[in-house]
Amino acid sequence: MNGALHDAMDAAVDDAANDAVDDVVNDAVDDAVIVGAGPTGLTLACDLALRGLTPRVLDRREAPHRESRGKTLRPGALEVFERLGVADRITAVGRSHQVLRKYFDGAHAADTPVEGLCLIGQWQVEEALRERLAELGVRVEFGAEVTGIGQDADGVSTTLADGRSLRSGYLAGCDGGRSTMRKLLGIPFEGHGGGEQSMVVGDVRAPGLSREYWHQWFTSDGGAMLLCPIPGTDSFQLQASPEADAEGRPLPPSLEGFQRLFDRHARMPGIRLADATWLSTWRANVRMAGRIREGRTFLAGDAAHVHPIAGGFGMNTGIEDAAALGRALGGETSLEAYEADRLPAAAHLLAHTSARMERVVAAVATPGTGVEAGLD
């Protein structure tokens, strides 16, 4: 055999081998595709990886965010994190003791210590979970937008915006209150809300303002502003009643607007807010999915339910959803048990947090009372 022919045959064999490897990669089946890399999706991914399963985590964002968002972890969520091996790094950053300093019409009214909850920014929770997940051999795929879902008796096919098609045994939609997965599955989001904005929120610095307190200003006309120090940073999470324009329409959040609201409520002329790294609005929504399982696909966290913020249950409930779904997908419980357990829990959560929110709104009209009215 001449050299040229021999080289050509070797090249053909190599190409065939490479094609075979490509076929194996393209046909590979993950145990679960998880859409959404917030606390819910990351908790589920860590849980499945610890069970020896192969999760694949997708997020449409191009990179992780650094927004405080949900900022309270309750004991139940910390118990889940303990089992996942991530609790210590979270509690090392978070703060378990917090003093709520309440003001009324600009005057200091009362200080209330709060124990038993871990105050920490949501981005910090997500960072710790991503680190743990990487230790387990799994990394989040950012910039991965899901555009289609198909399923059969053997698994789920997930189509991405870049044209890829992934195959998995199961799919979990953990992609938030505006869940694309819920919409693709045609699952109704039943309830009420979504009208006028109820609050402007953001992350800001407030040089000169003590970070030893969660500052809460309330006024006799029903207005409110809260500045909560996020541990491990020099920023505060701001929550406030929205501004309105001349026609009574709510104005979008801005640093300038935050300063006007601060001046109106806090009445501390020496404090100037700075570096608004997150600007958003919060609207009162009380909704839950009509079902949280559709064959081999599931919903968890805000994709399955949204509710009032009183009591700080949002991030925690998503984490507990993820733990329950991990037990089901890991074979510890049945798949049916997930919906049977978590759907009634969601219904209870909506009623419970709505009642807490009403209690807080009524309570803060009394000088010296703050959001602790919804924490007990």
Rank of each mutant, 00 (worst) to 15 (best):
Leu5Ala: 14
Leu5Thr: 13
Ala11Ser: 14
Val13Arg: 15
Leu50Ser: 14
Arg56Asp: 01
Glu62Ile: 02
Pro64Gly: 01
Ser68Leu: 09
Gly70Met: 06
Pro75Asp: 06
Gly85Ile: 02
Val99Gln: 00
Val99Pro: 06
Tyr103Asn: 01
Leu117Arg: 09
Cys118Val: 13
Cys118Tyr: 08
Cys118Asp: 04
Gly121Leu: 01
Trp123Phe: 15
Arg130Ala: 09
Glu131Asp: 13
Val146Gly: 02
Ala161Trp: 07
Leu171Trp: 15
Gly177Ser: 14
Thr180Ile: 00
Lys183Tyr: 07
Leu185Trp: 03
Ile187Gly: 00
Phe189Arg: 00
Gly191Phe: 02
Gly194Arg: 01
Met199Ser: 04
Val204Ile: 15
Leu209Ser: 08
Leu209Asn: 05
Met225Asp: 00
Leu226Thr: 04
Leu227Phe: 04
Ile230Val: 06
Gly232Ile: 10
Asp234Lys: 11
Gln237Ile: 12
Gln239His: 12
Ser241Thr: 15
Pro242Gln: 09
Ala246Lys: 05
Ser254Glu: 00
Leu255Tyr: 05
His265Cys: 15
Leu279Ala: 12
Ser280Ile: 04
Thr281Leu: 03
Ala284Trp: 11
Arg293Met: 09
Arg296Ile: 06
Leu299Arg: 02
Ala300His: 12
Asp302Asn: 13
Ile309Cys: 00
Phe313Lys: 11
Gly318Ile: 10
Asp321His: 10
Ala322Arg: 07
Ala323Gly: 08
Arg342Ser: 05
Ala345Gln: 09
Ala347Leu: 12
Ser354His: 05
Arg356Ser: 11
Pro367Lys: 01
